[in-house]
Design a protein around this nucleic acid. Structure first.
Length: 302
DNA sequence: AGGGCCCATCGCA
DNA sequence: TGCGATGGGCCCT
């Protein structure tokens, strides 16, 4: 599957065609953050100063500061530091045992403190065909801190989440392809609660778990369950997941399974890095992976 | 067939 | 040392 690259300027062009902006601009904040990330990534050698970045994206340093405090809860400097290779390596060091400990404790154990609490059920492709096909899936498009997203829910819980970036039809088609035979009905009122629940840390509560439905092959389900055991602001590697599953050689297959995860963000595929700490790939664009990791660094501090 | 990988090597500074 | 590039092996769909 072709990774969809970053399309900052496409999004910016679309922006100009949108109707009157609303008082709150979650997407505009994200676009600016992403522009900052891209600027920094493009000159990794040089490691630009905060002033330079502000100039590049057309803000004063003060407003850049305010933007990051509002959006991620931390200063621009802390944010930028949180997305460097050095930091990723430190993150992996600190998180070395998450897969072994957190998973045994259980998906709802103390390891999930301060994180999105999830309860899940799993369906194999066969089970889905037997009982799931013919279901009606509700979907809606909602703003998130990382751009507009499509949210797909079934009566049993959240089944899909992906970023649409203004290309709503493509996002919907992507979901339809995953569950052929299902009916899709737009019901944004129904999906809005999920979107709010997922992206507002104030709503992450152990006593009101988010119900999700994982539909995939045995191997995929096992990978996704492991992902759910990685706490906020922690990370692991493809090879560590393979090892934890008892298939030490299957790192590449793990990568493919991670990439097929239908519930982005909730099943935290962004918390999987290459063994070297490099970010490697992300279906929704590498800079979005960085943005999420930096944002999570801010949430973890709160 | 072909991946959101990993490891070993090699050739550069 | 620390990179970037390359080749071969690996395992799931």
């Amino acid at each position: 599957m072709a990774a969809r690259g970053d399309r900052g300027d496409a999004a910016a062009m679309l922006d100009t065609t949108l109707p009157a902006p609303r008082p709150c601009h979650p997407n505009r904040d994200y676009d600016r953050v992403r522009a900052a990330i891209e600027f920094v990534s493009a000159r990794r050698r040089h490691q630009p100063e905060v002033d330079e970045i502000a100039a590049e994206i057309g803000l004063t340093p003060t407003r850049l500061h305010a933007l990051f405090r509002r959006w991620a809860g931390i200063t621009p400097k802390a944010f930028l530091q949180a997305i460097t290779l050095d930091h990723a390596r430190a993150l992996l060091r600190d998180s070395a045992s998450v897969l072994d400990t957190a998973y045994e404790v259980g998906l709802s154990g103390p390891g999930r403190l301060h994180d999105l609490f999830v309860t899940h059920e799993a369906l194999s492709p066969g089970e889905y065909r037997a009982g799931g096909a013919g279901l009606t899936f509700s979907y809606g498009f909602h703003p998130t801190p990382f751009g507009e997203a499509i949210v797909v829910v079934t009566p049993r819980g959240l089944a899909g989440l992906g970023w649409s970036d203004g290309a709503r039809e493509a996002a919907l088609d992507d979901m339809r392809r995953r569950w052929p035979g299902a009916q899709f009905v737009e019901r944004a009122q129904e999906t809005a609660a999920y979107a709010r629940r997922v992206f507002d840390p104030a709503e992450w509560r152990a006593d009101r778990k988010l119900r999700v439905v994982l539909i995939g092959t045995d191997f995929e389900i096992r990978v996704w369950e492991r992902l759910l055991s990685i706490p906020l602001a922690r990370a692991t590697t493809y090879s560590d997941i393979a090892r934890a599953l008892g298939r030490p050689q299957a790192a590449r297959a793990v990568g493919a399974a991670v990439g097929r995860n239908p519930i982005s963000f909730v099943v935290p595929c962004h918390r999987v890095l290459g063994k070297s700490g490099a970010l490697t790939g992300y279906h929704w664009g590498l800079s979005r992976k960085q943005a999420i990791l930096g944002w999570e660094a801010g949430q973890a501090r709160a």
